[in-house]
Design a protein around this nucleic acid. Structure first.
Lengths: 215, 215
DNA sequence: AGTTCAGTGATGCGT
DNA sequence: ACGCATCGCTGAACT
């Protein structure tokens, strides 16, 4: 006997006993239990357990959902999720779901702009040239500044705590200018820095400037 | 008149017209609309819009939820979310929500283990000593191997596409051994690599090995 | 508690 | 489409 597949585009929430099988870039299985399934009409589907913020399984926007008997199948490129439902506790379709964007402030770009607008003061140097998001073959530098003695200030900004990866990133940018014969001064600018990163910065002539977000 | 606060520990889903204000590491506002609110009894709360995978606002486990009139307030450390509800479309408490863990395969550690188990063959070298997650002050190296001529193979594994950050990470580990006088050979091992990273690797004597996950 | 790094990262912005 | 960087990243493992 052949079960027919039915395309599901409707947004809904479903609380059900089910198991979930995922195959794609990775692969996973989730054994039977009561989970919350959320489907949005952009194709997003999420399977949430009773704890933790992240879903246990999901598909991002663009996935196609089909129903085949008691099985929900979400497919996207080479990724597939199968949800075998044994008991529906609860099902509700959602209409008029809003798509408003959220407005976030105090991001890294806010901090970068603040620092850029107060460069000479914060670096205690006479800056004659400066750039935001300066492009190089090894990545974009948050702020590049040049003083009247032609010293290059390579500045990496982090909104949160700077770490070893931050130091390495700065080093990559810095080496690019050293290789073309410039005098370089390296700066890490953030509200905080990890102890290992602080040590690494000291040993590699990177200057750490602690700054807070302006309210 | 004083509204009393009532602690809410129950897991629930709520579909409602509301606005959301967040203050904490960053700050955000979300204007009135219909959103899905999910609360778990570990304190997790999520506000989902009608599209995209990630919630518009959230609190991770450990947050405390209180109800004060028509406002839900979730607090955690220095983070606070206020949800002003004007119209409840739908409310349902969830009981017996499962906490099963998911089992994922084809992770980076799977790839690392596969590579580690076939080191001599894959490096075409006579390896006499090898380590997984070798600890250094500048981070843990995925695989460190030493051949009979005392050459150090510093190997960085990525389950997905390697990028410039991967190269810098490898360079940081590599420099640690160079600084203590070792002969070092740098390897990036992944299923794919970005064009910039490939270029950077070539110019910095990093060897790229393309490997796929074993099924 | 702090630090590191992986992630089916997702998401946005650039080319 | 690819490349790249951010994220209130989250979550896990280890010190």
């Amino acid at each position: 006997m052949m079960l027919s597949q039915v395309r599901v585009e409707q947004s809904f929430i479903l609380y059900a006993n089910c198991e979930v099988i995922y195959r794609g870039r990775a692969a996973s299985t989730l054994s039977f239990g009561n989970y919350l399934i959320t489907h949005k009409n952009d194709g997003t589907i999420k399977i949430d357990g009773g704890s933790l913020c992240n879903p246990l399984n999901y598909q991002p926007p663009g996935a196609i959902l089909n129903k085949k008997g008691n099985t929900l199948i979400s497919e996207r490129k080479n990724e597939i999720i199968k949800i075998n439902v044994t008991n529906v506790h609860f099902y509700k379709e959602l209409s008029a779901w809003s798509n408003n964007r959220i407005n976030i402030v105090k991001t890294e770009s806010n901090l970068r702009d603040y620092f850029y607008d107060n460069l000479s003061e914060l670096l205690t140097a006479e800056i004659v040239e400066s750039y935001k998001e300066f492009q190089t073959p090894v990545g974009n530098i948050d702020i590049l500044a040049i003083d009247k003695h032609n010293n290059y200030y390579v500045i990496e900004i982090k909104r949160g705590k700077a770490n070893l990866a931050t130091c390495s990133q700065l080093e990559r940018y810095s080496n690019y200018f050293i290789d073309i014969g410039k005098n370089v001064r390296d700066y890490i600018v953030s509200p905080d820095i990890s102890s290992n990163a602080r040590l690494y910065a000291q040993e590699n002539h990177q200057i750490y400037l602690q700054v807070n977000h302006k309210d």
